[in-house]
Simulated scan of single mutants.
Amino acid sequence: MSERHAPRIAMVAGETSGDLLAGLLLDGMQARWPALMAHGIGGPQMVRRGFDAQWPSDRLAVHGYSMEVLRRLRELLRIRKTLRADLLKNRPDVFIGVDAPDFNLGLEADLRAAGIKTVHFVCPSIWAWRAGRVEKIRRAADHVLCIFPFEPELLARHGISASYVGHPLASVIPLVPDRAAARSQLGLAPDDTVLAVLPGSRSAEVQYIAPAFFQAAALIQQALPAIKLVVPAVPALQQRIAEVARDCGVAHRLQIVTGQSHTVLAACDATLIASGTATLEAALFKRPMVIGYRMQGWSWRLMRRKQLQPWVGLPNILCGDFVVPELIQDAATPEALAAATLRWLRARADAPDTLAALEQRFTALHHELLRDTPRLAADAIQKVLGA
Rank of each mutant, 00 (worst) to 15 (best):
D142C: 02
R138G: 08
A170D: 13
K117F: 01
I147V: 14
R130I: 13
I147D: 01
V144F: 05
S125T: 15
V134D: 01
H120G: 03
A113N: 13
A109Q: 03
V119R: 02
W129A: 04
F148G: 02
G132W: 14
H143M: 02
G106A: 11
R112C: 04
A156H: 15
I126G: 01
H167I: 08
L155I: 07
I137H: 03
G106K: 11
D142K: 00
I137R: 05
Y164P: 04
R138M: 09
P152V: 02
A100T: 06
K117E: 08
H167P: 07
L111G: 00
I116W: 00
S161M: 13
G106C: 07
W129D: 02
C123S: 15
D102F: 03
L155W: 01
F148C: 03
D99Y: 10
K117M: 04
R133Y: 11
L111D: 01
A170T: 06
L105W: 02
V165C: 11
P124F: 02
W129K: 11
A156P: 09
E153A: 15
F121W: 06
L107G: 00
G166Y: 06
V165A: 03
S163A: 14
G132P: 09
D99A: 15
W127L: 09
A131T: 13
G132F: 12
V134K: 04
H143A: 02
D110Q: 12
G166D: 10
V122Y: 00
L145C: 09
P124K: 06
G132Q: 13
A170L: 05
V144I: 11
R139D: 12
A140D: 09
T118C: 03
E151I: 05
R157D: 11
L105F: 09
H143E: 10
V119A: 09
G159C: 07
R157S: 14
A140Y: 03
A140E: 04
A128K: 14
G159M: 11
V144R: 01
S163D: 14
A109D: 01
A141E: 08
L107M: 12
R138D: 10
D142A: 03
C146A: 14
R138H: 13
W127H: 10
Y164K: 07
L111F: 04
F103Q: 05
D142P: 00
D142V: 05
G115H: 07
L105Q: 05
G159F: 06
H120C: 04
E108N: 11
F121K: 00
A131L: 13
Y164S: 00
H167A: 05
H143V: 06
A156R: 15
S161V: 10
E135Q: 15
R130V: 13
R112L: 02
E153C: 08
G166V: 08
E151L: 09
I147M: 14
S161R: 12
H158S: 09
C146K: 01
G159W: 08
S161Q: 15
G166E: 08
H143I: 02
W129S: 10
P168L: 13
A114L: 12
V119T: 05
P124W: 01
S125H: 08
F150E: 14
I137G: 06
R130T: 10
A141P: 02
V98Y: 02
A131K: 14
L169D: 07
V144M: 04
P101R: 06
E151Q: 08
S171N: 09
I137S: 08
H120N: 03
